Simulated scan of single mutants.
Amino acid sequence: MFEVYAPASVGNFAVGFDALGAALAPIDGQLLGDVVAVQSATQDEFICSGEYAHKLPADPLENLAYQCLVHFREHVAPNMAAVRLELKKNLPIGSGLGSSACSVVATFAALDKFADTQLSQVELIELMADFEAKVSGGRHYDNITPCYLGGLQLTGDLIPNKSLSLPVCEQWYYVVAFPGFTLNTAKARAVLPESLSMHDSVEFAQRLSAFISLLHTQQFDAALSIMEDRVAEPHRARLIEGFAQAKQALPELGAKVMSISGAGPTLFAVCTDLTTAQQCADWLAANYINDQGFCHICQLDTLGTRVLEKEA
């Protein structure tokens, strides 16, 4: 038996709508993501457990991880031995932290290892994107690829191998706060404009390309100064109770960036020192999250999806 862990992620990353994503690792060593446990069995068996398992459909046929298992057996590895697959659902649904991507990525990575199919990076990413689309309504890679590969990823169909890893400042801290209520991804996409004006399209292209160039030339302060979401945030902010207050308070505490993680309602702030990050986390704990929410100070998870080592 082995367990595969897939980390939470921040989609869009402010400047990269549907194109940038960052994997998260809480600095206190906690695992913020889903785990899939796999072992041999006499017949295929599926179990859903974990803190948020009760938020998923009771019928396995409606569970993404089980659907991944069925598809993998039918289309990828028909001769695979029978397996007992357990999804440990540790991320809240509709949180904006790539919850569905975590389940899909962990499941396919675990099955690829179990069956020794040795799928390529592109093959796995494409397979993962197909199933994440069942929830998000489209083949968006900005949670899939950082969850799978780790780090900050520029991703999409035009990118070689579907993803390109970007350098970031090691002194950046990411404060992520899930308020304790959810936001349906389809609803969050429905409020977006169907098209952008020529001016807005050019500005988006300039902001994203400049941000990437500044990262590659290690001009990290300049990169932070243009890290702003003018595509999705203006439309989604009104859907998230408390977001406007946080948008005002966190920069006053020293946060360099504050925006929505993915489709929301989780928000994230980028800080350049741990003291500021802790001050932002304290404010969010007191003013943004309820008793069902959580807040973590993170840095990038550079490992991505991996097999968890067994304790001695």
Rank of each mutant, 00 (worst) to 15 (best):
L183A: 07
C68V: 02
T276H: 07
G16T: 13
A110M: 06
S209W: 08
P234W: 10
A249D: 13
D221M: 05
D142A: 09
R236P: 12
Q153F: 06
V191W: 09
D34P: 00
L24Q: 08
D200N: 13
G254L: 11
P251G: 12
R207L: 11
L87P: 08
V83G: 03
L253E: 05
F2E: 03
Q30V: 07
S99F: 09
L69K: 09
A312G: 14
A109G: 05
H71F: 13
H140F: 06
F204G: 04
A133F: 04
M198P: 00
A249N: 10
K247S: 13
D157Q: 12
P57Q: 11
A133R: 10
T275V: 15
V38W: 06
A285G: 09
R230N: 15
D301G: 05
T107R: 05
D221Q: 15
T302D: 11
A19L: 12
Q292K: 15
G242I: 09
F114G: 04
I47T: 12
L164Q: 14
Y174D: 02
L274P: 00
K256Y: 05
I226V: 09
Q279T: 10
K310T: 10
L224C: 05
P7A: 03
L64V: 08
A110P: 14
S136E: 02
V175A: 08
A109W: 12
A22T: 01
I297T: 14
C68H: 08
A77C: 13
Q279R: 14
H140E: 07
F211M: 01
D116Y: 00
D28P: 00
S120A: 07
N79Y: 01
V70Q: 14
F181E: 09
K247N: 15
L303N: 13
D116P: 06
K88Q: 13
E132S: 02
L56Y: 10
A210F: 06
D59S: 12
L119S: 11
Q219W: 04
Q118D: 12
V4S: 05
Y52Q: 07
P234A: 07
G50M: 05
A129H: 03
L91M: 14
I226D: 02
S197F: 04
V307P: 11
S163M: 03
A223Q: 12
D229H: 09
S99Q: 08
S9Y: 10
P26A: 08
Q171D: 15
T155V: 02
L224Y: 07
V76W: 00
Q206K: 14
L69A: 11
A110F: 08
L124Y: 05
V105Y: 01
A53Y: 11
W283S: 09
E86L: 04
G16K: 10
E132R: 01
R230K: 15
E233Y: 01
H216P: 00
E74W: 00
A106H: 09
Q245M: 07
I93D: 00
V270K: 03
E45K: 15
A286P: 00
N63K: 03
E194R: 11
A22K: 00
T305R: 00
P160E: 08
A188Y: 09
T266Y: 04
G98I: 00
T217V: 11
N161H: 12
G180M: 07
D130S: 15
F211C: 03
Q245V: 06
L208W: 10
W172R: 02
A210Q: 13
P265L: 04
